[in-house]
C-alpha cells in the first residue's frame, strides 16, 4: 500500500458551487444565497461539504486504483467551511503502525484542514 495518497485539487468559485447545487439538487441557501448566508452564523456562502469529499475519493482512486474503492470505509468530519475562491486539496497518508488505514484530509490554500478523517481499505474478499 502506498504510504502517501496522490493529492487531488480544485478551485472552488461561486459558479462551481452553483453547478454542484444543480447536480445534487441541494439548494440549501447557505450554499447558494449570498444574502441569506451573510446573515447566518456562517457569515457568508459556504461550499457543500461533500463537494470537497470528492477530492478524497479521487486521491484514493488515483493512488489505489478504481477497484479498491469497492473496499473503502470512509469516516470524515467537516472541521472548517470552504469559502468562495478557496483552493482545496484532498490527500492522506498511512496511519502510523497501520498498513490499511489512511488519515485523510482536505486542506485549503492556507494549509488549514477543512475535512479530517480516516479511510480504511478492507481486505479483498
Amino acid at each position: 500500500m502506498e504510504r502517501q495518497l496522490k493529492p487531488s485539487s480544485r478551485h472552488v468559485d461561486f459558479q462551481a458551487i452553483l453547478n454542484y447545487a444543480d447536480v445534487t439538487n441541494d439548494y440549501n441557501p447557505i450554499h447558494v444565497d449570498k444574502e441569506f448566508a451573510a446573515k447566518s452564523p456562517m457569515g457568508g456562502i459556504i461550499a457543500h461539504g461533500t463537494m470537497s469529499v470528492a477530492l478524497i475519493w479521487q486521491a484514493l482512486k488515483n493512488t489505489l486504483g478504481v477497484e479498491a474503492l469497492n473496499r473503502v470505509a470512509l469516516e470524515i468530519r467537516f472541521v472548517r467551511p470552504v469559502r468562495i475562491d478557496d483552493d482545496v486539496t484532498g490527500g492522506g497518508e498511512l496511519k502510523a503502525g497501520s498498513d490499511n488505514v489512511y488519515e485523510v484530509w482536505v486542506k485549503n490554500q492556507k494549509g488549514e484542514d477543512v475535512i479530517r478523517g480516516e479511510a480504511t481499505i478492507k481486505p479483498a474478499s
Binding site: 440549501n28 441557501p29 447557505i30 441569506f36 447566518s40 456562517m42 459556504i46 457543500h48 461539504g49 461533500t50 469529499v53 474503492l69 469497492n70 473496499r71 473503502v72 470505509a73 470512509l74 469516516e75 470524515i76 468530519r77 467537516f78
Partner: peptide, 12 residues
C-alpha cells in the same frame, strides 16, 4: 434552511 453537514461515513 441553513442546516450544515457536520460529518459523514461511507461503508462501501
Amino acid at each position: 434552511p441553513g442546516g450544515v453537514h457536520g460529518g459523514q461515513t461511507f461503508d462501501v
